[in-house]
């Protein structure tokens, strides 16, 4: 299976052979989608990991045991339904129809189609769309 996870490294978790462990011990294949380092205070990594369900689970347990925050990510943009009014302005800039209007003119967000261009974050007049990283 393939899964997206967002890792956060506090300073104390730095210096661990995280990547090697995930590959060697847990047989996981992964690609780094996004990485941010915040002046040695905190690091953030968005990974797409591939492997068996059991290996992914064990790998996540390993990361958590080493003070690395792990969060499942469906999509890097989130639509706050309390703020969204289904105006449609975000759909204007979504080239892949990850954001589109349903038959009853509600906004729907298809996580799987999103290419993470983040243009919708700027296009939303209600500021209802947030980038997770």
């Amino acid at each position: 299976m393939t899964k997206k996870i967002l890792l956060s490294f506090p300073q104390k978790a730095a210096g661990q052979p995280m990547a090697m462990e995930l590959i060697k011990t847990y047989h996981l294949d992964f690609s780094i989608l996004k990485a941010f380092i915040d002046d040695n205070i905190k690091g953030t990594l968005l990974l797409e990991i591939k492997g068996s369900e059991a290996d992914i689970e064990a790998g996540i347990v390993y990361l958590r045991e080493h003070q690395i925050g792990v969060r499942d990510i469906e999509s890097v943009v989130e639509v706050d339904q309390a703020k969204c009014v289904s105006c449609g302005a975000c759909t204007a800039v979504c080239a892949v129809d990850a954001l589109e209007m349903t038959a009853d003119w509600s906004l729907v967000h298809h996580d799987d189609k999103c290419l993470e261009c983040m243009l919708c974050v700027k296009a939303c007049p209600m500021r209802a769309i947030h980038a997770i990283i």
Partner: peptide, 22 residues
């Protein structure tokens, strides 16, 4: 959802909420 202008199919998007208007 799309309009043809000079042979090019162009995506259309609303800016006002029809859902809320209803």
């Amino acid at each position: 959802g799309a309009v043809d202008i000079n042979g090019k199919i162009i995506k259309t998007s609303p800016l006002s909420s029809l859902k809320m208007a209803r």
